[in-house]
Amino acid sequence: MEKVILFGNQSVAKEIFFYLKYFSDYEVVGFTVDREYLESDSLFELPVSPFDIVETVFPPDKHKMFIAVGYVQNNKIRKERYFQSKEMGYQLINFISPKSIIYPGTMEGDNCKIGHYAVISPGAKIGNNVIIGNGCMIGHDVIIGDHCYFSGGVSVAGSVSIGSCSYLGTNSTIRNKVSIGKECVIGAGAIILENTEDRSVYLGEPATLLPISSDKLPLG
């Protein structure tokens, strides 16, 4: 089995740990976090290394990595650690649930998670470092930019484009042929019927545009 370390020690990392343990051929052998967030030197009886020395503890020629971080700071932390780990020489893995439906040619990137019972339709394209939660429905020819995060139950109709670093909350819905800007926040249950600008924030049903930029939200 190929050995993997997880960046993170919170809920997303714990979830990914169990997904990989029970639904993959990877063996998680440890965790790594930024030194200031090191709460313990072990998690699930596995070692936790500060990220600034992870290369010496878990050499990249012998270990792969998954950046298991949520939408903190509108996905920017996961984006930063994604690039830093690649610069260190780590190969980043994907986790695609065996309980999902996904067609050949859909996955174009790495460090992606496709949750249980998600359906990714033919012609869709998923970028790098994308988290798609359980039960999401992604329509045909949808383009998902890098570093996005979809909570469970998101529904995206056909021919939609979603800009990088956007967050879609639980059970939100995007109408067909809509373009979602970069770094947008679509709240839980929101229904989007028209294009959105970069960093826009929408809540409600139908969705209401809030007078705030997404980079001002206390996400995380």
Score class of each variant (00 low, 15 high):
residue 3 K to V: 08
residue 6 L to K: 05
residue 7 F to Q: 01
residue 8 G to K: 05
residue 9 N to W: 02
residue 10 Q to M: 10
residue 14 K to N: 11
residue 15 E to A: 10
residue 19 Y to I: 05
residue 22 Y to D: 15
residue 22 Y to Q: 14
residue 24 S to I: 08
residue 29 V to R: 13
residue 31 F to C: 12
residue 31 F to V: 14
residue 32 T to Q: 01
residue 33 V to G: 01
residue 34 D to P: 09
residue 37 Y to A: 01
residue 37 Y to H: 15
residue 39 E to P: 03
residue 40 S to V: 04
residue 43 L to H: 09
residue 43 L to Y: 06
residue 43 L to F: 11
residue 45 E to Y: 07
residue 46 L to D: 03
residue 48 V to C: 00
residue 49 S to I: 04
residue 51 F to R: 09
residue 54 V to K: 12
residue 54 V to T: 13
residue 56 T to L: 15
residue 57 V to L: 11
residue 57 V to C: 03
residue 57 V to M: 02
residue 58 F to C: 07
residue 58 F to W: 09
residue 58 F to V: 00
residue 59 P to Y: 11
residue 60 P to K: 05
residue 61 D to W: 12
residue 61 D to Q: 14
residue 62 K to S: 12
residue 62 K to R: 12
residue 63 H to Y: 13
residue 65 M to W: 04
residue 65 M to I: 11
residue 68 A to D: 09
residue 68 A to S: 14
residue 69 V to A: 13
residue 70 G to D: 08
residue 70 G to I: 01
residue 72 V to T: 08
residue 78 R to N: 06
residue 79 K to R: 14
residue 80 E to Y: 14
residue 81 R to C: 01
residue 81 R to V: 06
residue 82 Y to N: 07
residue 83 F to R: 08
residue 83 F to G: 09
residue 85 S to L: 14
residue 85 S to F: 15
residue 85 S to P: 00
residue 87 E to T: 02
residue 88 M to P: 02
residue 91 Q to M: 12
residue 93 I to Q: 06
residue 93 I to K: 12
residue 97 S to F: 07
residue 104 P to A: 00
residue 104 P to V: 10
residue 105 G to I: 04
residue 106 T to S: 15
residue 106 T to C: 15
residue 106 T to L: 04
residue 108 E to P: 01
residue 111 N to H: 11
residue 115 G to A: 02
residue 115 G to P: 03
residue 117 Y to K: 14
residue 118 A to T: 10
residue 120 I to R: 08
residue 122 P to D: 06
residue 124 A to F: 04
residue 126 I to M: 13
residue 126 I to Q: 11
residue 127 G to H: 09
residue 128 N to Q: 14
residue 129 N to S: 15
residue 130 V to D: 05
residue 135 G to N: 04
residue 137 M to V: 13
residue 138 I to G: 06
residue 139 G to R: 07
residue 139 G to C: 12
residue 140 H to S: 10
residue 141 D to K: 12
residue 142 V to N: 03
residue 142 V to T: 11
residue 143 I to L: 14
residue 145 G to N: 09
residue 146 D to W: 03
residue 147 H to L: 13
residue 149 Y to A: 01
residue 149 Y to N: 08
residue 150 F to L: 15
residue 151 S to M: 11
residue 152 G to L: 02
residue 154 V to Q: 11
residue 156 V to H: 00
residue 157 A to S: 14
residue 160 V to H: 02
residue 161 S to E: 10
residue 164 S to N: 05
residue 166 S to H: 09
residue 167 Y to F: 13
residue 168 L to E: 02
residue 170 T to I: 15
residue 170 T to S: 10
residue 170 T to M: 14
residue 171 N to A: 12
residue 171 N to K: 10
residue 172 S to R: 02
residue 172 S to K: 04
residue 177 K to V: 02
residue 185 V to Y: 01
residue 186 I to T: 09
residue 186 I to Y: 00
residue 187 G to S: 12
residue 189 G to M: 03
residue 189 G to Q: 05
residue 197 E to Y: 05
residue 197 E to V: 04
residue 203 L to C: 06
residue 203 L to K: 06
residue 205 E to P: 01
residue 207 A to R: 03
residue 208 T to K: 15
residue 208 T to A: 13
residue 210 L to A: 02
residue 211 P to H: 04
residue 211 P to A: 03
residue 211 P to S: 12
residue 212 I to A: 09
residue 213 S to D: 11
residue 214 S to T: 10
residue 215 D to Y: 10
residue 218 P to F: 05
residue 219 L to K: 05
residue 220 G to P: 06
